[in-house]
Amino acid sequence: MNENLLNAKILIVDDQESNIEVLEDLLAMRNFSNVISTKDPRTVLSLVQTEKPDIILLDLMMPYLSGFDVMNQLKNEGLLNGYMPVLVLTADATLETKKNALIAGASDFLTKPFNLSEVELRIKNLLYNVYLLSQLKDQNFILEEKVKERTKELLHNNELIKKQNEQLKEIAWIQSHVVRAPLARLMGLVELLQLNETSDELGKDEIVDFISKSAEELDGIIRDITLKAHHSKIFEQENES
């Protein structure tokens, strides 16, 4: 249903043809253009299912099925859910009747004989309530969709962080196991030089040569790590443009 309430589909249910005609005339005078009707209450359920009216104007005293019976049928089918109000038409305006109709699922009452302004106001009020309710439902749907979208984004970012953590762990492992080997060689060799402790196997020239090789090895490893970090874009935000 849209904001223009005059387009709403109205179903009139009354066993008296004259009542239907009066209501149709009144509604036409107020520019309601989408009105259907039935004199047989037994057809209401199938009409509701096929025509999907926005509001039902329902008589209470009818043969075969009373207005209460019709509301019970609709309730059992889950059709009295707030999105299709029932406006009860009755000549019996007692409190007891009104109470029973409300319990049965009616939204409001119209007392016979009908008054043009009252008919228009009550119908428009009920339709406007339905319109607001459906707006609220739409808003909730939009909000739920936004929450779903944000949750998806968060999960994606979480995965990204996990991946980056794995890469950082890998670099930490390389630092611990690969970088430290040539570094440890350098430290050991330097101490031998400091102690002036050389041997035939490891003379001063050999020590200096090994220091040079270890330093080059270390340099190569550090360059590899830099390249690896660069390729994996580990320090960049993926969604940065």
Partner: peptide, 15 residues
């Protein structure tokens, strides 16, 4: 498995 570490450790142990 590293020849240099073996030499280093041997020399340091003796020293």
């Amino acid at each position: 498995d590293d020849q240099l570490f073996l030499m280093l450790n041997k020399q340091q142990a003796i020293f």
